[in-house]
Structure formats: structure tokens, C-alpha cells
């Protein structure tokens, strides 16, 4: 049997690109259908799409088809290049983020020893895209949305990263694969029945990470940059057709990818307790396990999104700087002490 290692570089790269596209777009589509169409409809006591395909499952294709047909409108005074490039930058951040997420012991795109560091770094790139969209639209609503988004994303990068630091200390590595294995092979105070999912030992970090992630995704209650009741849709106001679709995909794909990162960091990634972490089974069921965990975590995201009102900009900053960052710092200190003690 030919293994992946024997393929030519270009073949391997093509496979990885295809895999990355599938990992982002299929997950995003699944999340849109399960959460945006069905879960939210259930919460809001309506049916959601029911006509296209069984239970409306093909509605997403119809929506994409609709968006593709629409005219690509540029505002007259827009900075055309910046305006046109912004959605690509936002989407690029998402695609770069997914490369470090492993789907099984051998099913990975890039096995980088600085995996989580790279993830945190590229996740910030979307800020630039958002700011480009806000500035390039030549619209005051867009500008305000873009500026709010920038302030918010920068503010919440910090707790996000600080929450990760606890995990890194505990796992002893920044390699995403290593973090999974550390959870699979770990033990909680000598009991190794579940391994050591960092959800249990790093619950403070998980709490901070999920809140900061919600803010990074600009989902309610942190959707002040979009704030459809005041800024129309913030930095996306002037976009139409294909480019709006890219923002839309970006929103859900980023939700999926961030959930995947969170799943790796806190829920043990592709590992399920009771099986040998080195077994080849995980190359097959690993991606599915990941998908399950991603759906669960993004369920939390969308549950909060459709339940809570939104914070005002200053309240949101206060939450980040005065609440989340101190908690995360204390968590790091406590984790470090415990790590040394045990």
C-alpha cells in the first residue's frame, strides 16, 4: 500500500489543499445547516427552511446560488482594491488557522512544533481584513463597525492567548498533535480513566477561551461591530453578492475552526477515551470525532449568540481588560505552581 509519504510534493500539497477546503467549507456548511437553520429555528419556535431537499438540507446550496448570481456592487467612493481584497483577507485567516488542526494521529495538514502559536498568530490576520472592509467601504457605518471590530478583536486576543498558555504549560508542548496526545495519555491526580482532557483541569482556561472566542467571532453578546440594529451590518454593510457570501462563509467557517482549536485544546481533539491513541482507527474516526466535538462547541457559540443581548463597546472592553485578562493570568500562575508541585 502506498503511504502518503511516498507521494510527490505537489501531490501531497494538492491533497492538503483539498482536505483543508473540505475541512473548512464542509464544516461551515454543516454548522450553518444544523445551527443557523435548524437549531435557531427550534429556539425561535419556527421551522426554518423546509423546501429545498429533505428538511431543507439543500437550502444552503440554494443560498449560495442566489448570492453568486447577485451583482457585485462597489460603492462609488470606495477604495476599490481594499474593498475587493478585504473578504479574501478575512477568509485567508480562517484557512490558515485550519492547517494546524489535526484530525487523527496521521491525519494532519502541518505538524508544526509551534502549532498553537501559529494558530494564534494567523487568527489575528482577520482584524486587518475587517479594518480594510470598514475603511474601504467609504461608509460611516462600515467605518464605525470596522473600528469597533478592531478594538474588540485586539482586546480579546489577549485573554484568548493567555487561556491557551495554561494548556501549553500543562501539555508541555505547543504542538497541537502533542496537546492531543498529552490529553490522551495524561492522568488526573493519578487516575487515567479518561486521560486528562484539559476541560477538567483547565476549566478556567476553557471558560475564558470560550468567551474570548465568542468575542473573536463577533457573535452576540459581543457583536457590537455588526450590531444590525444600529450599524446595519457594520463593516459588511456595503458588500453584496459573492463578497458578502465570503464574509458569511468566513463567519461560520471561523466559528467551526475556532471550535476545532478549542476541541483540540480542551476536549482532547480526535481522541476518545477507551481506545489506544496510537491505533490506526483514529485516522478514520478521528475526523468524525473532531466534527462531533466541533458541532458541540459551536452549539454553545450559537446558543449564546441567539440568547443574549449585546454588550456596549465600553462594557465589552471592560469585560476583557478588567475581568478576563486577570482571571487568565491567575490561571497561568496557578497552573504553573501546580505543574511544578505535581
Amino acid at each position: 500500500m502506498m503511504t502518503l509519504g511516498e507521494l510527490a510534493y505537489w501531490e501531497l500539497t494538492s491533497l492538503r489543499v483539498a482536505g483543508g477546503l473540505a475541512a473548512v467549507l464542509l464544516v461551515a456548511g454543516t454548522l450553518v445547516y444544523i445551527h443557523l437553520f435548524k437549531l435557531v429555528s427550534f429556539m425561535q419556535s419556527r421551522l426554518g427552511p423546509m423546501e429545498a431537499g429533505p428538511y431543507g438540507s439543500l437550502q444552503l446550496l440554494a443560498e449560495v446560488g442566489k448570492f453568486l448570481q447577485k451583482e457585485d456592487i462597489f460603492p462609488r467612493k470606495a477604495d476599490r482594491f481594499v474593498f475587493a481584497a478585504a473578504p479574501f483577507v478575512v477568509l485567508m485567516s480562517t484557512f490558515l488557522l485550519v492547517v494546524v488542526v489535526p484530525g487523527g494521529p496521521d491525519a494532519w495538514f502541518v505538524d508544526n512544533d509551534l502549532g498553537i502559536y501559529l494558530a494564534m498568530a494567523v487568527s489575528s490576520v482577520s482584524v486587518i481584513g475587517v479594518l480594510m472592509a470598514g475603511w474601504g467601504s467609504a461608509n460611516k457605518y462600515s467605518l464605525m463597525g470596522g473600528l469597533r471590530a478592531t478594538g474588540q478583536l485586539i482586546a480579546y486576543e489577549l485573554p484568548l492567548m493567555l487561556a491557551v498558555v495554561g494548556v501549553v504549560i500543562e501539555a508541555g508542548t505547543m504542538n497541537m498533535q502533542g496537546i492531543v496526545l498529552a490529553q490522551a495519555n495524561g492522568s488526573i491526580f493519578g487516575w487515567s480513566g479518561l486521560g486528562n482532557p484539559f476541560l477538567l483541569t483547565q476549566f478556567v482556561g476553557f471558560f475564558v477561551f470560550m468567551i474570548a472566542m465568542q468575542a473573536e467571532l463577533t457573535q452576540s453578546p459581543f457583536d457590537m461591530p455588526i450590531a444590525e440594529s444600529e450599524l446595519v451590518t457594520g463593516y459588511m454593510t456595503e458588500y453584496s453578492g459573492m463578497r458578502f457570501l465570503m464574509f458569511f462563509i468566513g463567519e461560520f467557517a471561523t466559528a467551526g475552526v475556532f471550535s476545532a482549536v478549542a476541541a483540540v485544546l480542551f476536549l482532547g481533539g480526535w481522541y476518545v477515551p477507551g481506545l489506544d491513541a496510537t491505533s490506526n482507527v483514529f485516522n478514520v474516526i478521528g475526523p468524525l470525532v473532531m466534527l462531533g466535538k466541533v458541532v458541540f462547541l459551536s452549539f454553545l457559540v450559537f446558543w449564546f449568540r441567539f440568547t443574549f443581548p449585546r454588550f456596549r463597546e465600553d462594557q465589552l472592553q471592560r469585560l476583557a481588560w478588567k475581568f478576563l485578562i486577570p482571571i487568565a493570568l491567575v490561571n497561568i500562575v496557578a497552573t504553573g505552581i501546580l505543574k511544578v508541585a505535581f
Binding site: S220, D223, S229, T307, R310
Partner: peptide, 16 residues
Amino acid sequence: MAVQVGAITPVFFAFR
């Protein structure tokens, strides 16, 4: 009022 403050779901209950 809820939807203006940012919560989307209550308005559906209201319409229902």
C-alpha cells in the same frame, strides 16, 4: 426592545 439591544430570539416569541 430586546432585538434593538441585540437579542434576536425574543422578537420571534413576541410575533408568535
